[in-house]
Amino acid sequence: MILMIPDTVIQNPAYEVKGNDMTTKQISVFLENKPGTLAEFCKVLQKNNIDMRALCVADAMDFGIARVIVDDVYETVTVLKDEGYICQITKVLTVEMKDEPGALSDILAILGDKGINLEYTYAFLTRQRDKAYLVIKVADNKAAANLLEAHGVKVICQDELEKIFGD
């Protein structure tokens, strides 16, 4: 079921869920589009015992952007920079869904109904069997997070995300 809440709630910048940063950190990495680059990238992570929880690759004609969710963001960025990769930390929203048909479409409908455009999105699973997680990139994280929370969707913050990985 989709709850209707007034637009003013979403647009009011003073309104902040729990007063916390509701975002999680994704690492975006530039990869040249040629055979072996992704394998090489994964090897670097493996060599440094970095556990990749989610991966999404977007590709243009000549290059690609790998977006990863890892357990230790700062460690990973340090390693990648040392290896000469161009990368950045991007704040994204991670929401919890029931791992069942229709869960994703409900969430997307909440955003779509309010005209919130998704720059990109991808999903991942953890060891918790009944749950799935959706990573979304929107222009205004706060507005989207508030909207989702107002509809009863759980938005995961960075601490919670790390805890999930720790389980």
Partner: peptide
């Protein structure tokens, strides 16, 4: 660099 393909 950007995480968004369209920006790059």
């Amino acid at each position: 660099f950007s995480d968004e393909l369209s920006k790059v």
